[in-house]
Design a protein around this nucleic acid. Structure first.
Length: 487
RNA sequence: GGGCCGUUAGCUCAGCUGGUAGAGCACCUGCCUUUUAAGCAGGGAGUCGCUGGUUCGACCCCAGCACGGCCCA
């Protein structure tokens, strides 16, 4: 036994060696498969008595002396193998006895049913397709340890059906989202992840360096400014599904690397974006879950449109009272009275955002569009007709989760330049999350961008909602983790 | 960043008031040609997260650290 190697591993390695002694290559190049397990189980009546070839992982082996049963799991599900010494012969039965739970095997044989009614393959020949050298997690508790599940997702997927379901559902979420947008005439594109400037959101970026250009580049924090260039370019309905990166804290709902769907539609505004949002989310629920009702914690949430529209102003009035909205000082006082940790001096916009995220958003369990935000915290959105300090913007919330952000896009290039300049001043004033000037984006706007509605949806959180997952890491296949430093 | 909780066999977990560690699954040996959490009999398996400290003696008490979880900022 090598250092650190358990007895179980030694046994599996020993079986590997003995397979080779029998002249069997445990990692062959070729395999055969005529059916996946689900096909055999579902079409048993027509397949009974015919010969099939199956392949997959052995998840359970039950020996009976000169015979044995095993559960073979493949992409379709599970089918039982029935291996008899008098069917496979002496040599093959020797090989069968060297097979461990976890091994990838192929088997050829006749479709049959046991007397207990289990659809099975009565094996004529068996092949080892990949010998496993490490034991699987326990068979009926699965792999529970969250750390191990996140660090070793392959094991989690083998051992936990729930985990596999989550990620298959997530895949279908992407597919249905694309179908939905294609039906509406949207075009999928890819824009740069490595960017000389970052923008489109408030966040600290990840910085990297390109050696041959001799320059620093940023990993994008949003897709927005490139997608709007495409609207200028005449691609009137455009979307991108991809990763954004924000160099911020991690918690139950934040991952530094996360997936976002962003879409832009020319000749549309944020009302149209609300309709798209409601329709898409409801469609996803129906297609993936068969119902518009999702379970979230101990609540049931109905995602059927139309969703509630709540103005930021009304939300703030309800949270801190109308008097508090008169000035930044009044709002600060009211926020402090509600227990918020307010550091003076704070401007109205960021303060309002604080109040919203602490006192309002967690209560937005039923699907809600929070609409009409302060301009000061929305440098890319167009003003409302009623109030130049308010913009046509919404964020939407379900189950207390912020799931997305949308504007009627600002398309006045001069106004956009002024907004960027204000942001730059804030950045110089020490706000690391303020957005920088993007001259090339303004250059594009100067050629004329049609009135446009834009929308971003956080796909990880949407996947959380649709699967009931309490932690964003539960819906990210390989979530970022600190290195596992063994002493 | 702060508070609380966790880390014991490959996995899931027990472990009392400090006296050198247990179960189930998995694994090994034997029996078993329709089992499916197969069964019966027997057996092996541990750096108790890491480093220090207290103590005659530490999985257990104390301190620090690491990783993770929940909550708060």
């Amino acid at each position: 036994m090598e250092k650190g190697e358990s007895a179980l591993v030694a046994e599996m390695r020993d079986n590997l060696a003995r397979m080779r002694e029998l002249g069997v290559e445990p990692y062959p190049r070729r395999s055969e498969r005529t059916h996946v397990s689900s096909e055999i189980v579902e079409a048993f009546d027509t397949l009974e008595g015919t010969e099939v070839a199956v392949a997959g992982r052995l998840m359970s082996v039950r020996g009976h002396g000169k015979a044995g049963f095993a559960d073979l799991v493949d992409g379709g599900g599970k089918v039982q193998l029935y291996v008899r010494k008098d069917e496979v012969g002496e040599e093959q039965y020797e090989l069968w006895k060297l097979v461990d739970v976890g091994d990838i095997v192929g088997a050829r044989g006749e479709v049959m049913k046991t007397k207990t009614g289990e659809v099975s393959v009565k094996v004529k020949s068996v092949a080892v397709l990949a010998k496993a050298l490490k034991p699987l997690p326990e068979k009926w508790h699965g792999l529970k340890d969250k750390e191990l599940r996140y660090r070793h997702r392959s094991l989690d997927l083998i051992a936990n059906d729930d985990s596999r379901r989550v990620f298959l559902l997530r895949s279908r979420m992407l597919r249905v989202s694309r179908e939905f947008l294609w039906e509406r005439g949207f075009v999928e594109v890819e824009t740069p992840i490595l960017q000389p400037n970052y923008g489109g959101a408030f966040a600290r970026p990840f910085t990297t360096h390109h050696h041959s250009l001799g320059m620093d580049l940023y990993l994008r924090i949003a897709d927005e400014l490139y997608l709007k260039r495409l609207i200028v370019g005449g691609i009137e309905r455009v979307f991108e599904i991809g990763k954004d990166f924000r160099n911020e804290g991690m918690d139950r709902t934040h991952s530094p690397e996360f997936s976002q769907l962003e879409l832009y539609q020319a000749y549309a505004d944020y009302h149209d974006m609300m309709e798209i949002t409601e329709s898409l989310v409801a469609r996803l629920a129906v297609e993936l879950l068969g119902t518009t009702k999702v379970t979230w914690g101990d609540r049931e949430i109905d995602l059927s449109p139309p969703w509630r529209r709540l103005t930021v102003r009304d939300a703030l009035v309800e949270a801190v009272g109308e008097e508090a909205l008169g000035s930044a000082a009044a709002l600060a006082a009211a926020a402090k009275a509600k227990g918020l940790d307010v550091e003076a001096p704070v401007e109205f916009g960021p303060l309002a955002e604080d109040v919203l995220s602490t006192l309002v958003e967690p209560k937005l369990v039923e699907p809600t569009f929070l609409i009409d935000y302060p301009k000061a915290i929305s440098p890319l959105a167009k003003e409302t007709p009623e109030d130049p300090e308010t913009v046509e913007r919404f964020e939407f919330f379900i189950g207390g989760l912020e799931l997305g952000n949308s504007f009627t896009e600002l398309n006045d290039p001069d106004e956009q330049r002024r907004r960027f300049e204000l942001q730059e001043a804030q950045r110089e004033g020490g706000d690391a999350e303020a957005q920088g000037m993007d001259e090339d984006f303004v250059f594009a706007l100067e050629h004329g961008m049609p009135p446009t509605g834009g929308l971003g949806i956080g796909l990880d959180r949407l996947a959380m909602l649709l699967t009931g997952a309490p932690n964003i890491r539960d819906v990210i296949l390989f979530p970022p983790m600190r290195p596992d430093r063994q002493a």
